[in-house]
Computed example of a mutant assay.
Amino acid sequence: MNASITFIGNATTLLRLGQFTLLTDPAFGPAGSRVYLGYGAWTKRLRDPVLDALQGAAIDGMVLSHLHGDHFDAAARKWIEPTLPILTTPAASRKLRRKRYLAVRGLPTWECFEWSRDRQRLRVTAVPGKHGPGLVDRLLPDVMGSVVELEVDGRLALRLYITGDTLVHDALEQIPRRFGEMDAMLIHLGGTRLAGMLLTMDDRQGVDVAQLIRPALTVPIHFDDYQVMKSPLADFVTRAERQGLTGITPIERGGTLHLPLRDGIDGGHAEQRNAM
């Protein structure tokens, strides 16, 4: 049994976890396309997603951290079937239902959704996220992180934390308290700024979260696809190394990284292969 992440671009990944396949935050527009962020704000995409990596994928469901244009854009909406199960925030689910997405499920914080197949079970639990500082957060879309757990014969094989577009805030401390050890983390970085306000983690906040969660493997995503992202990935990697953090593993667009399975579960090692 194997578990892996394929990085498509921005926050879009393909997670192959045992017998299950999840798509996260699909944004399929090419470089040069523009997406709407609300309140009259737009941003331009700078890098192409690697859509070839999606060919042949039989997707069981989609995890959408929140409803912003750089996480679910017009190109992706044309591609996603209205019957595909979508796990997202309650606010986003209400909007998507009005757009005729028939299988969307809004997860309040700490609620979960499960798939079962043969001897395996995949569970996605919504965890806290905060997209903006102070009262500004109320003006932005609700956002959730996700903890994804793969079980085989009732035994935990993998626990993965996807941060979503969150800033550091006190509620994040509840995640390691409730779940314990994380095998891997997909961390949304980029230091997104609008009107001078920080809306996603920069290198400093990213290191703070990595120190809090202490996963065996940390995979940075969401860091340089759009003009509003101001904090380079290299700054995060350098700061993490200076703080003595290990397991920081960047992944190229189109590349696949095998995720570590727990002892006693048959699987691959944490090694990366990049698309040709």
Score class of each variant (00 low, 15 high):
123 R>E: 10
145 G>Q: 06
268 G>K: 08
57 A>L: 02
64 L>V: 01
5 I>S: 14
148 V>S: 08
168 V>H: 15
211 Q>R: 15
78 K>W: 03
103 A>D: 10
84 L>V: 03
252 E>T: 00
102 L>P: 05
224 D>Q: 03
271 E>F: 01
84 L>I: 07
200 T>D: 13
133 P>M: 07
141 P>N: 00
187 I>C: 08
165 D>F: 00
128 P>M: 04
30 P>G: 00
115 W>F: 12
63 V>E: 04
84 L>F: 06
81 E>R: 11
217 L>F: 03
90 P>K: 07
1 M>H: 14
76 A>E: 05
231 S>E: 02
136 V>W: 06
218 T>Y: 07
140 L>G: 00
26 P>L: 01
49 P>G: 10
69 G>L: 02
38 G>W: 00
149 E>A: 04
112 C>M: 05
65 S>T: 04
2 N>H: 11
187 I>W: 07
128 P>E: 08
138 R>G: 04
42 W>F: 13
67 L>D: 09
235 D>V: 00
212 L>I: 03
180 G>P: 09
272 Q>S: 07
139 L>W: 11
18 G>W: 08
167 L>R: 13
120 Q>E: 15
24 T>Q: 15
76 A>G: 06
261 L>E: 08
12 T>G: 07
240 A>E: 00
263 D>M: 04
113 F>D: 05
224 D>T: 01
215 P>A: 14
249 T>K: 11
224 D>M: 03
32 G>R: 03
6 T>Y: 12
275 A>P: 05
22 L>W: 10
89 T>W: 13
81 E>M: 08
91 A>E: 15
242 R>M: 00
140 L>I: 05
249 T>E: 13
218 T>D: 02
110 W>G: 11
4 S>M: 02
73 D>Y: 02
